[in-house]
């Protein structure tokens, strides 16, 4: 299929992009890597009036450090992420999840920010961002910037805190350095399929005790979710199969996953428990 006709803008700076978005009329779609947007447009499930293509906005691409944070430009591609030395050192959970996104060709085009702004609950990166308490830096009309925490960024199915006229500029995540173990445990039927359920876990050990735990759930509701009960059960607990298994049993608490041809809700909840156990065990080095 061929997308419906649209007006096209290809800004080279954030300011130009904001202007293009503002000038784009009622129905503007911001295109990052386009790897989800173009197929949807080809199927004519989306037919925006204007597409603002960010691929030439070079200032949005790249990873830098700022104190205890990693700052990831929204147009950093998945491939960039996988090659980045700062990510390799401080962003292993992001790297693990990114490796599972689609396939190499898609990862060459698809972007970190695009995947987050698309906010598909079956996407792999939203749950990671949520688990890491990422901060979303958003530029608005005129260039004003605001920062939204991940917990407030993912509003609903394919819906974020991004308002009309706004642009996701960068994502700040805490560096997870020494002492942290991570695991992205993804479950799908075939390799290139979207997650049926996945669990992002980061665990910091202090000796034989779990000092911190961050657990995000992919595709367990209309937004990515934190497995708060599991996190609370883990913190301060001994690192043992028993404690991890007991904690993971709470992974599906409060979730309302969908039923579709890959899985019905009760099975998704079961998977969340099993995969959380596996992810935490791996992250904790068990």
């Amino acid at each position: 299929m061929i997308p419906a006709a649209f007006a096209y803008a290809r800004p080279t700076t954030v300011d130009e992009a904001l202007s293009a978005i503002a000038a784009g009329g009622e129905d503007v779609k911001i295109m990052a890597g386009g790897q989800s947007l173009i197929p949807v447009m080809r199927l004519r499930l989306a037919a925006p009036e204007t597409v603002v293509d960010l691929t030439k906005v070079t200032e949005l691409r790249g990873v830098r450090e700022d104190g205890d944070s990693l700052v990831i430009g929204s147009m950093t591609t998945h491939s960039d992420i996988l090659r980045d030395p700062l990510i390799a050192r401080y962003g292993k959970l992001i790297a693990e999840a990114t490796e599972t996104v689609a396939d190499p060709a898609v990862r060459h085009r698809g972007t970190f920010g695009g995947a987050l702004a698309h906010a598909d609950p079956a996407g792999d990166l939203p749950a990671v961002a949520l688990a890491l308490d990422a901060e979303f830096v958003i530029a608005g009309p005129g260039g004003a910037r605001r920062s939204v925490p991940a917990a407030a960024f993912f509003v609903d199915y394919l819906t974020t805190a991004l308002e009309d006229g706004e642009l996701l500029v960068e994502i700040r995540v805490p560096k997870l350095g020494e002492g942290w173990g991570v695991r992205y445990e993804k479950f799908n039927r075939v390799a290139q399929a979207w997650s049926i359920v996945a669990v992002a876990a980061a665990v910091r050990r202090e000796g034989s005790t779990i000092a911190e735990a961050r657990i995000g759930l992919t595709n367990m509701g209309s937004t990515p979710l934190r497995a708060t009960a599991v996190e609370q059960a883990l913190v301060g607990a001994d690192v043992s199969l028993e404690t991890v298994t007991a904690a993971a049993a709470q992974a599906a608490e409060g979730t309302e996953p969908s039923s579709d041809l890959n899985a019905q809700a009760d099975y998704r909840q079961h998977l969340a428990r099993v995969l959380t156990g596996r992810a935490v065990r791996a992250a904790a080095g068990l």
Partner: peptide
């Protein structure tokens, strides 16, 4: 239509891409 099959894969500036999921203007 959905960038699953990869039959259209080419190299764009040296990297593999699915040419059905890239606009010609890009």
């Amino acid at each position: 239509d959905t960038s699953n099959c990869g039959a259209c894969t080419v190299h764009l500036d040296g990297e593999s891409v699915k040419s059905c999921t890239v606009l010609a203007v890009q």
